[in-house]
Write a protein that binds this DNA or RNA. Structure first.
Lengths: 242, 242
DNA sequence: CGGATGCTTGAGGTCTATCAAAGCGAGTGG
DNA sequence: CCACTCGCTTTGATAGACCTCAAGCATCCG
């Protein structure tokens, strides 16, 4: 591992007010005055090399993180080593909310490609959100959105079959990519079949087979991790019909 | 439906400071001054008859609710009518956090036995938590705990088999009952096999069969909804060993 | 008492997991 | 530059867990 791989800090100029992700991220500031205060929120950035962790279950909770670039997965592990991917995070999304409850992180956050995050010290965020009610509201919204998202995953895991799960996964992914200015019909998966499978409660072979089926049905074009969505409507129909 | 079934309000004297659930609930107030302010948080109580809803998906979000007595389930429903129970809530637990994200509730909360809740208007809670940092922190802890809990359910749904799921469910239930002063070795289920099954991603027949297996293994004694845990260690072993 | 609701149990079917082998692609070192 | 290796993916054959369908039983309540 190279020395720079884990560089914990980089004193680059950090300013939420001029960040092109601010529409998607934590700080929705209404007034100029609020924005000025917000810029003090983020202390520094941190780079995380592909394959290494931003934090691990059990680590002391100090800060939450906003993904600036790259891609993460979060996972929980049971005592006996069962592993479950609980989510994939891309630019503008927050990591670490699980740590608040016990002052210690409850999952691992692993970069699945080289990434950079903004470090938001949590005590500072709480202090700030006591003074800027819009920030407080936005933070609450984001936590709530995470809860709603998790409920959606529970619905998926509890009641859908393999094809429906993968369809839902792809539609969710393309929606988030589209929100970031990508086409949404053509995408490169950043995660392995195994990671997708873990997230969806399926085995990697099942993911692979389902991709193949979608391809032979003319719904997708699949070349390894290169995916082209040919018939998004068919994916949507899978979920909404029976 | 009876007129009293949906009685929206009851102007009983409501005071968190003298509530016997305060250890489990939202308001952990450190100072007497803080407690005085907290008592203004809860506006009123509301009774919910068994089978009727506290709120439904789509309802405008105004308040969160603390269960004072009774038992709730929350459920999400997909467009095509698939239903997933996302949780069971007992005294001292909060309901409605899902509504913050969109100013509208994202799930249904159904009383599965006659219940009473404290209504906590959300704007008031936010205002209050801007002034009492301990309340703010506690509220954040509770939201975070909900996220961590959901991740645990995802692990369960994504990687456990029927026996393990039911074992985990029972252990969770007895733990929460014990925290409320009940024995934990003997309990009465408030929910049907179907509701348990929905929560665990299984069919009611599978729940029934698994109960029967636990009984023939000498782990449980089952008489309909009357459950006696004979060998909690065996349940724990099911989850922790492969 | 009789109907409604929920629970139990059986038999057979389906979906997904498991095990196994081969193919592809990217990166490495000779 | 090519051969090699390693990680990831694809595909097949088989097995197992859970679902589906169906019937009968228990419990509650008007």
């Amino acid at each position: 591992m190279v020395a720079t791989a884990q560089t914990p800090a980089r004193r680059a100029k950090v300013a939420c007010s001029s960040c092109n992700l601010r529409e998607l991220c934590l700080p929705v500031a209404p007034s100029a005055e609020a924005f000025a205060r917000l810029d003090a929120l983020v202390e520094l950035r941190r780079s995380v090399k592909r394959g290494s962790t931003l934090f691990r279950s059990g680590d002391a909770f100090e800060a939450i993180y906003a993904v600036r670039s790259g891609f993460f997965k979060t996972r929980v592990t049971s005592p006996d080593g069962r592993e479950q991917v609980t989510g994939f995070q891309m630019a503008g999304e927050l990591l670490g909310l699980d740590g608040i409850s016990n002052d210690a992180h409850a999952c691992d956050a692993v970069a699945i490609e080289d990434a950079q995050v903004c470090v938001i010290p949590f005590d500072r965020l709480e202090r700030c959100s006591r003074e800027i009610s819009e920030l407080q509201r936005q933070f609450h919204r984001i936590m709530s959105r995470e809860i709603v998202r998790d409920h959606g995953v529970m619905l998926l895991l509890g009641s859908m079959r393999a094809e429906q799960r993968l369809a839902a996964f792809l539609l969710n992914l393309t929606k988030r990519l589209r929100a970031r200015g990508f086409s949404g019909s053509s995408l490169v998966l950043r995660m392995t079949r195994q990671e997708i499978g873990s997230y969806l409660g399926l085995k990697l072979e099942t993911i692979s087979r389902t991709f193949s089926k979608f391809q032979s049905d003319g719904v997708l074009e699949v070349h390894q991790r290169q995916i082209r969505v040919l018939d998004a409507e068919a994916l949507r129909a899978l979920i909404n019909d029976c």
